[in-house]
Design a protein around this nucleic acid. Structure first.
Lengths: 365, 365
DNA sequence: TGTGATCGGGAAAGCGCATTCCCACTGCAA
DNA sequence: TTGCAGTGGGAATGCGCTTTCCCGATCACA
């Protein structure tokens, strides 16, 4: 990766490196038009490309924003990534990508790598974990992020605060009201469904999943319904599928014992803690010969764009994922320029979602 | 982003910066155990994080791989991105992301930005364009990439070669046999469908789309069928939807004039140049009251993972997208180490896909 | 015409690190 | 004891760029 340098350009143009630097980037001082033209031509002739590393070193600002996600191929994250990317582009920054599978230890590695590259900001998306086995990783992640913040970095956090992080400014939380929205969804579903509810969630300790489950339960409670049983599986399509198989088994057993009530009574209403799990569960039920919503109702969470054409339309909670990515990124760069200007930044923003009922939860006797 | 420096660590440990550098990174020379321990402790105490920018500058290798896609939220690209990310991780590199919407001019910008950051490799995915209005952008993109290659960079190209690029080594093409696979798909469909075919493609000049269309047509021809009409729309879900509406209109008209042959004769068989277009078209048809495969058959291309649970199952051509991303990245870093070792690198690899027939093209009278 | 202000340009000092020399010291054989 | 290779460490240079600081020249104004 050798390329021509500023010095070479300067020499060719017959000026000093200082002058060349001044014309070839937005410096405050503008050299005379004659000189500028010469320099520009020399740069063009040599195919000069400024070395961003050197620039970053010299003015200690890298123009990088780091993005940490569990899995970039998961539509939830890729939608957020799009938002991040957009803002980065507007701000003339580049985004550095790291995928971690949700492991705090890996997330810590990613933060360290971003810090090493002196990223101007870090956006971290994906549910935090509260599982005991992640305690150590969480502590290290928090320490790494705290250090990054103390060194002047800004981190945009999507969803819920970092477990164990200090109350530094530098953290900007984009809050997603998972619990409230799940409660609202539960209320809506309870209004139209008199049968039993069951929840498919991620592993216990995954905060996003737990929040949604808790919200859903409280929504049921508010509607005077008993708490739903919770099935745990991995927080992705495979987990949903697995749980779906289990539910298919149960439905079959229930029917076998409870005589032939098929189609007479509303069946199970399943709430999956995210859309891809819901789709997985639906696929499992279908593969076992059940139909939705005839044999079971099902709802998800997120309203993933690619899944909107799914039939029957999946009831879910629409989350403005791209906007979330945008906000998380903006909150970091915004305060960078308007640093503690008026009063002070609230340190983040809250987005809102929207319960979206579709055919997957319409029970027609 | 101020942080403690190597010099500070060295001072605290009572050694020279040179020694500190030697112990804190994998240098050839290993300082004595006592000194090493002191330095390591000092680094720990200060929370030292090496400045990757400075390191890159000093040893001129950035540990960065640039990835250029049209849209990271498109599942086609996010699947590829996952593969790229995996390899990057294995190689201890970080990936820099750029999204361009497929505009060559923007792609050129991205390449320049990557070159400025001295990325060790660039992976560029997404159909090349041959549209006249992109001529200028293409030329510039090719020039920029050529320059990057000449400076020692490696670029992994997914799909088809860069329009107008020089025959430099430095380019590594991962070839996707779009044409052959589309032909094969057409052959399979023609065997089971006696009715008319129609193609929904991207804008003319989008090479991936054009290749698939051409392949499909030649497959039809090989099966003794007349060429299919081609509808052009944007190469995404919206385009597919729009084309789907148009087709719905035609089907309705044909039925109105051709008496009530509904359900008696096989209807239209639609080939969409990619899966998301197919899904869009299916949604449009459905919204117009038609059912698939009863009223129209439909097939796509790519076999997007998120869309596999779609009902009726979408006939398509499975492409190993993640593997494609992996290969494209490997081809760039592989030759970096084993640079022109044995004989010489073929400069790329070819992947293969698999025609996958599902219910969306099963016509049951 | 003289004087301070302004402007256009260059010299030089880093930014944080890797690395090449170079030196002092040790251990060993002669 | 001298000579020499080997070893562990430091001084210094440079990666490519930005940014003070400085200096000569030009300008406006008295």
């Amino acid at each position: 990766m050798a390329a021509s340098t500023l010095t070479e350009v300067a020499r060719l143009a017959g000026v000093s490196p200082a002058t060349a630097s001044r014309v070839l980037n937005g410096s405050a001082r503008k050299p005379g038009p004659g000189v500028s033209e010469r320099v520009r031509q020399a740069a063009e002739a040599l195919g000069y490309i400024p070395n961003a590393q050197a620039q970053a070193l010299a003015k200690s600002s890298s123009g990088l924003v780091g993005l940490i996600v569990h899995d970039i191929a998961d539509p939830y994250f890729s939608a957020i990534a799009r938002g991040v990317q957009e803002v980065a582009r507007e701000q003339h920054k580049m985004v550095l990508l790291a995928t971690t599978g949700g492991t705090p230890a890996d997330e810590k590695e990613a933060v360290a790598a971003f810090a090493a590259r002196r990223a101007d900001a870090i956006v971290i998306a994906g549910s935090r974990s509260r599982r005991p086995e992640d305690d150590k990783g969480n502590a290290e992640l928090a320490a790494e992020l705290d250090r990054y913040c103390r060194n002047g970095g800004h981190v945009g956090v999507v969803g819920q605060a970092i477990v164990g992080a200090g109350a530094l400014d530098g953290y900007h939380l984009v809050e997603v009201p998972n619990e409230e929205l799940a409660a609202e969804l539960a209320g809506n579903l309870a209004a139209g469904h008199s049968g039993e509810f069951v929840i498919i969630g991620g592993p216990e300790g995954l905060i996003t999943s737990d929040d949604r489950i808790r919200g859903f339960q409280s929504g049921l409670a508010a509607a005077g319904r008993p708490a739903a049983e919770v099935l745990r599986a991995s927080f992705n399509r495979a987990g949903g599928y697995q749980a779906g198989l289990e539910l298919a088994r149960r439905i079959r057993e229930a029917r076998a014992s409870g005589a032939s009530q098929e189609g007479k009574r509303p069946g199970l209403c399943i709430f999956a803690a995210n859309d891809v799990m819901a789709i997985g569960a639906a696929a499992a039920l279908r593969s076992e010969g059940f139909r939705i919503p005839r044999d079971a109702l099902i709802a998800g969470f997120d309203d993933i764009e690619t899944l909107r054409d799914f039939r029957p339309g999946l009831s879910t909670v629409r989350l403005p994922l791209e906007e979330i990515g945008r906000l998380a990124t903006l909150s970091t760069v915004g305060t960078e320029t308007a640093d503690r200007g008026d009063g002070h930044d609230d340190g983040g923003r809250t987005v809102t979602g929207q319960v979206t009922l579709r055919r997957s939860t319409e029970w027609a006797p």
